[in-house]
Design a protein around this nucleic acid. Structure first.
Length: 278
DNA sequence: ACCCGTGTTCGCTG
DNA sequence: TCAGCGAACACGGG
């Protein structure tokens, strides 16, 4: 699930679900999600009212007030994390790890099968103190991608451009799917050395990253309107919404000549069309 | 049994 | 300091 578009979607859900709502109860079902040695730290949220819902890269930054004192909740969804809303009376979804009860009769469940995601209470809602947030590059959606700045950073690197795009210090929010999709849109071979891109390619890449993220987000919003379900989750068995990610062996939809290939870079899958990505 | 998975962090090397 | 790399984390699904 979670790259920038999915985390942005989660942010919008949180805003609809929790704005001016107060936490009435907290249940930590899986302490490893919080902090193995401090499972009770989420208790600091009891009585807190959510007021602000931000995102930086793949990080969800939720701000609340408790007796006029700001308190933050940092949420990173890892590989399989998501937030779901249920009636307080309903059973917890499968793999629910943390449950926050709100004063409107609903419970927000943090659901995460693989447990790579993390939650932390952030005193004073000072999110810069969170290591994963400090040092993040510009947000790929909100701040946009500046081709010149991107070029400067890439010029120092020896590795392939696809691997460089996953570095959150360079650009925050691009993950394994969006990196493949953006390079495909920009018609750039993912194996190209990061430093070898010329200004025209950097401009194409900057536009492609934005377009790819916006397209994924628009697809999720459309699905949400169609189903009218406030707890939108990707259905198992739903069709692959991407242009070419995970379409190994399929004919390229753009050039109709190449066949999508899968290679491994830095231990992650990369997909590309050998015919139209030069 | 084997391989795969939308992410990050740590330890090591040069 | 830093770029780069492999392993580790954890738990499924196909």
């Amino acid at each position: 699930m979670p790259e920038l578009p999915e985390v942005e979607f989660a942010r919008r859900c949180w805003q609809r679900w929790a704005r001016r709502r107060t936490v009435t109860a907290i249940s930590v079902l899986e302490p490893r999600v919080v902090k193995p040695d401090a499972p009770r730290s989420l208790e600091a949220l009891r009585g807190a009212t959510f007021v602000r819902f931000e995102r930086r890269g793949k990080n969800l930054l939720l701000s609340a007030q408790r007796r006029k004192v700001p308190v933050g909740l940092w949420s990173h969804l890892g590989m399989s994390g998501k937030w779901l809303r249920r009636e307080a009376s309903e059973a917890a979804p499968r793999f629910s790890r943390v449950r926050l009860d709100l004063d409107d009769g609903h419970a927000l469940h943090y659901v995460d099968m693989r447990l790579f995601g993390k939650l932390r209470v952030v005193p004073s809602a000072d999110f810069e103190t969170v290591p994963a947030v400090k040092g993040l590059g510009p947000d790929a959606l909100v701040d946009g991608v500046d081709p010149a700045r991107l070029g400067e950073r890439l010029a120092r690197l020896k590795g392939p451009v696809k691997v460089a795009l996953l570095d959150q210090r360079l650009l925050a929010g691009v993950g394994n799917i969006q990196a493949s999709e953006a390079l495909y849109r920009a018609k750039i071979d993912p194996r190209r050395p990061a430093r070898s891109l010329d200004p025209a390619e950097l401009r194409r890449l900057a536009t492609a990253i934005r377009r790819s993220i916006e397209a994924t987000l628009a697809g999720m919003e459309k699905e949400l309107r169609r189903r009218g379900d406030v707890s939108y989750v990707e259905e198992p068995g739903s069709p692959n919404p991407f242009l070419m990610y995970a379409r190994t062996g399929e004919r390229c939809r753009r050039c109709r000549r190449g066949v999508i290939r899968r290679i491994v870079q830095a231990a992650r899958s990369t997909f590309f069309c050998p015919a139209c990505q030069a």
